[in-house]
Simulated scan of single mutants.
Amino acid sequence: MTDAFIEIPGVRNFRDAGGIGALRRGVLYRSGSLHTLTEEGARKLKDLGLRTVIDLRSQEELEVWPDQRHGLDHESLHLPTLPANRDDLDRPWPEDQADLYTFMPAYAGPSLAAVVRRLAAPDALPVVVHCAVGKDRTGLTIAVLQSLLGASDADITADFLRSNVGLGLDQGPTPYVDETGTERISRPINADLIASSLAWIRTHHGSVPDYLHAAGLTAADLAAVRANLSV
């Protein structure tokens, strides 16, 4: 593992998202969910100065696997990446991993806009952004933020791919049970996946900032988050 990883007992794939582009270290962390966070893990999060946890999972996931706090007094925000209602979509729900990475940016605008607004507030930091295992939904969210802070696609991709190591997927796919009790397979990620998300954003909106503008953010919002997260 790289020095970006931080051992937080009970939390998978926890690491600092900073250190690339202008995004400084110690303000934005990424991880899997906190539903098995231990008391020791909570003490380590407190030592990091944690103020905000942003949960990108579905409502059903939260109900089955609620984050643990162990007395931590951070603010918790539920900002799901994926739409809750599958019936009103203009494209099919993704059936495989490749589809997911063009599906997510098509519907994640509201979530990403809300994440940026919270990160622009000085009292929000440090922040942990997480989904179930910190790989796909978190991967897109962090990639957009890193791009906004001037990271290159190569550096964004290198950070994205660290989830394979953080989750043991560098050894191949692993089985898991989802929130409905169904056994599924968690598959390793590859560079083409996050490239397809960024390509979708640029094809449909021109740039990451323009994508966020389309989601309702202003130039002042983007300037504020850059100022808050920059070295």
Rank of each mutant, 00 (worst) to 15 (best):
D123L: 02
L82P: 01
I6E: 10
L50H: 04
Y101P: 05
D221Q: 12
F5E: 10
D3V: 04
E179N: 15
G21M: 14
G32Q: 00
G26D: 14
W65N: 07
G109C: 05
L229A: 11
R91K: 13
V27R: 08
L198V: 08
P92Y: 12
Q97G: 00
W93Y: 12
L72D: 07
S186H: 15
D210H: 11
I185L: 15
D221Y: 01
G49M: 08
A219D: 14
V27I: 12
T180C: 06
L140Y: 02
I189V: 15
V116N: 03
V11N: 04
D153M: 13
A113F: 00
L23T: 02
V129P: 01
L198G: 06
I189T: 15
N190H: 11
D3M: 04
L140V: 04
L79D: 00
L212V: 00
M1T: 03
D155C: 08
T36F: 02
T180G: 11
K46T: 08
G109D: 12
Y211T: 06
A42W: 02
S111P: 09
R15N: 07
T141V: 10
Y101A: 12
H70Y: 11
L34R: 06
D87T: 07
I194G: 12
G206E: 09
G134N: 08
D155R: 13
E60C: 02
L72T: 07
W200V: 13
C131V: 06
P105Y: 03
A106Q: 10
A151V: 08
A121Y: 04
A223F: 03
D136L: 15
A143P: 07
D123T: 04
V231I: 13
L119Q: 02
G181L: 05
A223E: 12
A4R: 13
D55Q: 03
E61Q: 15
G21L: 10
A121W: 01
L149T: 01
T81H: 00
P66K: 15
R162W: 07
L193A: 04
D159V: 01
A108W: 00
L28M: 12
R117T: 03
F14C: 05
L169Q: 14
A199L: 12
A132K: 15
E179I: 03
L212N: 05
A154M: 07
L222A: 09
G139T: 06
F5Y: 13
T180F: 03
T36Y: 02
A120W: 00
A143H: 10
L56Y: 04
S111M: 03
S207L: 07
H205I: 07
T157F: 02
R51L: 07
D73P: 11
G19Y: 01
V225G: 01
V127T: 11
V11T: 02
A191T: 14
A120G: 13
A214E: 06
I20W: 05
M104A: 10
F103Y: 06
T157Q: 04
H204L: 12
R15I: 08
V231D: 15
R187Y: 08
G26E: 15
L45C: 03
D3C: 11
G206W: 01
D87F: 07
L193P: 05
M104L: 07
K135R: 14
A42C: 04
N85M: 03
C131H: 02
G32I: 00
T203R: 12
A223Q: 15
N190D: 13
A191G: 14
F160N: 15
T180M: 07
C131D: 11
G41R: 07
L79A: 05
I142G: 03
D155H: 06
L222R: 13
